[in-house]
Every structure is written in C-alpha cells, then in structure tokens.
Design a protein around this nucleic acid. Sequence first.
DNA 1: ACCTATTATTGACGAATCGTCACTGACGGA
DNA 2: TCCGTCAGTGACGATTCGTCAATAATAGGT
Lengths: 262, 262
Amino acid sequence: MSPRILDEESLHARELELLDTALSIIEKEGVAGLNMDKLTSCVPYSKGTIYNHFNSKEDLLTGICCQGMRILTDLFSKAGTFAGSTRERIMAQNLAYLLYALLYPNRFLLVISVMSPTLFERTSERRREEIQTLETELLGTVLTIVDESIANGDFTLPVHMNRKQVAFANWSTSFGTIALLSNDTESCECRRGLSIGCELFNSINLILDGLGWKPLSSEIDSAALIQQLLSEIFIKERLMLESKGINLDLSAPAVAEKNHSK
Amino acid sequence: MSPRILDEESLHARELELLDTALSIIEKEGVAGLNMDKLTSCVPYSKGTIYNHFNSKEDLLTGICCQGMRILTDLFSKAGTFAGSTRERIMAQNLAYLLYALLYPNRFLLVISVMSPTLFERTSERRREEIQTLETELLGTVLTIVDESIANGDFTLPVHMNRKQVAFANWSTSFGTIALLSNDTESCECRRGLSIGCELFNSINLILDGLGWKPLSSEIDSAALIQQLLSEIFIKERLMLESKGINLDLSAPAVAEKNHSK
DNA sequence: ACCTATTATTGACGAATCGTCACTGACGGA
DNA sequence: TCCGTCAGTGACGATTCGTCAATAATAGGT
C-alpha cells in the first residue's frame, strides 16, 4: 500500500537538468529551434515526464528565465558588497546587469520574450508567482542601497519621488538601454555607433546626476571605477567575458561628463 | 498576351485591410488567439493570397508593428511642432510615446515581441529594412530637437557624448519605463504603486536634469506643461484616451523635483 | 467571338509540433 | 505472491503553419 517514493531533491535536480538542456538547445539553434520533441530526445526522460515539470513550452521558457533572474539577483547582491560609496555600489549593480546581459544573452532576451503576453499568458501560476518573488528580491537589493544613501545624505529624495520610484528609474533605464542594444547592433543602421556598455553608464550617470546623487559623475572617474569593480568583485565574470571573446568596449566614451555644474 | 492587372494601389489597400483585421483579432483574443486560418476566415481572401503579402505569421506581426511605428513617428513629429522651448518639445515627444503606449497597447507590446529573436528571425528582409527605416526616421525627429537645443545653448553636449547618444539615452529610458509598466502593473507586487505616466516623466526629467538641459525641472511646472500639451497638440489623443476610459494618472507625484540645486 | 499567354487566387494537403491520456512498469507492503 | 499506488511512457489526436498544383480571371491578338 506504499507506492514509489518521489524524492523532492532529485525532482529538483531533474528540473534543473531539463532547463539546462533546453538552454543549450537554444544556444545552438535559437529559441525557434527548441521544441519539446527535440528536448525529449536530448534527455533521458519522456515527454510526459517533461510535462510533469512544465505545463507548456512557454512554461519551460519562463523557467529558464527564472533561473536567469536568480543569477542576476546574486550578481546584484555581490555588487552591493563593494566597499565604496553608495553611488559606486549602484554603478556596480548596473555593471552587474551589463555583465549578465553579455554573459547570458539568451537568458536576457528570454526575459523580453516572457514579457510578451503570448508567453506570459501560457505560463503556470506557480511560475508567475516565482517571477514576482524574484523581481521583488531583485529590486530589494537596489532599494537597500537607495535607503542607505538617503540615510547617508548622499542624495535627497526628490519631493515627488519615493525610494521605490528612484530604484525603479534606475532599473527601467538600464533595462531599456540593454534591451535596445543587446540585439546585434550592427545590423541596425540607426543604432550604429552606439555601444551597450558606453550608453548604459551614460544613461545611469545622467539619472544619478539628475538626482544629485553624490559624488556626481564629474567628480569621479567612472571608467576607472568599472575597471576596479571588474578586478575586485567581478573577477570570475571578467574571465568569462574574456573566454567568450567579448570586449566590454568602455574605452570609447564611457561616461557622461557633467559639465554644466550650475 | 496581357494578363491580369496588379494594381499597386489596391494591393496596398488590401495589405492594410489584412493588418487591421489581424490587429482586431489580437485585440479581441490576444496575440495567442491570432492564427492564419482565423485571419483567413475573417477576410474575403484565401490563405494563399495572405501569404503573398506576408511570408509568415511572424512577418504579419512585424507588419502590424511597422504600422505602429508610423503612427508613433507622426506623433513625435507633431510633438516637435509645439511652440515652446526645446526641453518642452522633448517632453512633448515623451508624452507622445506614452499616449501611443496607452492608446495602442497591443501595438506597443508587439514591438517588444518583435525584438525577440523568435519573431525577428522569421521576418522578411523587406520588412526588416522597413523597421530600420522607421527607427531611423523616429530617432531623427528626436535628433532634430537635440541639435536645435545644442545650437540654442539650452544644454551643452557632455564631453563623452554625441548628439545621437543623447537622443538614445532619452529613447531607451522612456522605452524601458513604458515596457516595464505597460503590462498590468497591478498583478505584479513589486511594481505596485508605480504609475506609468508618473515614472516616465520622473525618469526623463532626471535624464534631462542630468544633462543640464534648461530650463531644469525645478524651474518649470511639468504637470502644467503636460496639461497644456494635451489641450493644444494632443487634443484628439486626449479624447481617444477619455473614450477608452483611461486616466493618465499624473495627478499623483508627476515629476521629479530637483531639490538639491548644489 | 474566341483563343491564348500570363498572372492572381484558391483551399486541400503535408509537415511539424503541441499536449494528452490510456497504458506500462516499478516499488513496497500485506 | 499478489496488490495498490503512482511515476513514467510514447503513440495519438488536434492544431496550425506554409505550400503548390489546379483553377479563375484578364486583356490583347486574330
């Protein structure tokens, strides 16, 4: 009267295996090249078993997306540990975002896909909740720094903005920049001459300067800071970048110079 | 020896009809609810004829997206005609973006979908070029104002940024904000309390203040400006908003107050 | 009026892929 | 040894995409 055991542990391991295999297929053949039969054939489980983990192909994609958000949250947390000013730590988090998008481009693009109703509508309730949790956690790592900087007096909350809005302005700006530039920028004439790293830090510096978040960009050497961050807390990520042959390309115009100092 | 006529004019009209019908299906049943057989049955043409216009379902979606970009470009142009300072005109263009996203949410979301490789990879070369052209045109309407403001002395180009980068910083920021908030914000806990219009103008004001683009946000009444724009150049759009029952919701914290004035 | 060359249109069909479900098999008690 | 339960299986039905051989439409030539 006691049937087979269902080991929570190995169940989770299997889900991980499925997600990893699916991602490797995507990396080889693109998102369009992934289908459930192909995944089935790449894995020692049957289709039915796969559908025990994910109730649709879309759910599987969202699952990959969740993994990515966890990676990203870890990177953000690590960025928050940098021993520097709050502004420098915010910059570190944006660098983390950039590194994530460059190191895991497929994961980042998947986030965009998941935003589209087509995908999201067909995602299981469980995983939707997971995304929410992860998003909250992610924004939380930013909020921590915002709070500290307000307490410090590094900047004063604008009259019509609260802490969450400040964190969101930062997030949406970096998201927009990376999203628009993470496709192959060469193929699009109007984006030619724009470099993802360069524009990201430009925009973020503008936002932070606009907030009056000290020290202003005119008072620090952003390019040097980024190099420092790369060699102090993102060592592993820098190596991964190099082994992928990706150049951060911040040598060009890297930061916005605040030259109006009114 | 003379076959049937292929009237360029009516061909274009038919394409328009197909695009409109497809969009209306999407509005009724969501993007997932659109399929080629359904479109065929809603239209007095056969599937083969539809495939003469669009070489895949994805191509059709991109086509709808292009229509939207044309609408958006027109709105941006109209915004550029506002008789005010360059900063006010930039604000007008961002308002145009917001109006577009609110009035044509499906079209805006489609832009996001088209960014994902799945869709874009399966789009015809012809339409990819169309998107590029439209993007260039769109960014051009922003560049015009940037150039004028530089000539005016309304702001000075930061040392490490060129005109294109300034225009792009504006574009990517508004894109990011709208993209992250145009889904139903209520369903996501971490975005609760954020209003799309509010955050958009917050972020843009931060960017423009960061650039030192005069007059600074502390020197103007952004909320009043928006009301003025709505009643002077976006009259039709305001009426459309009202008839859709959408509240712009700028009554809440509408703009960033620049209260650090160092 | 009729024929013909050319092109537009059609919709039935093949191919691909999704997701299900009736069956199989494995396991641990009785 | 038998039985009850549940995880796993993969063939199958259903859906939807995109094609293509057949058909219809047209206008000039005779």
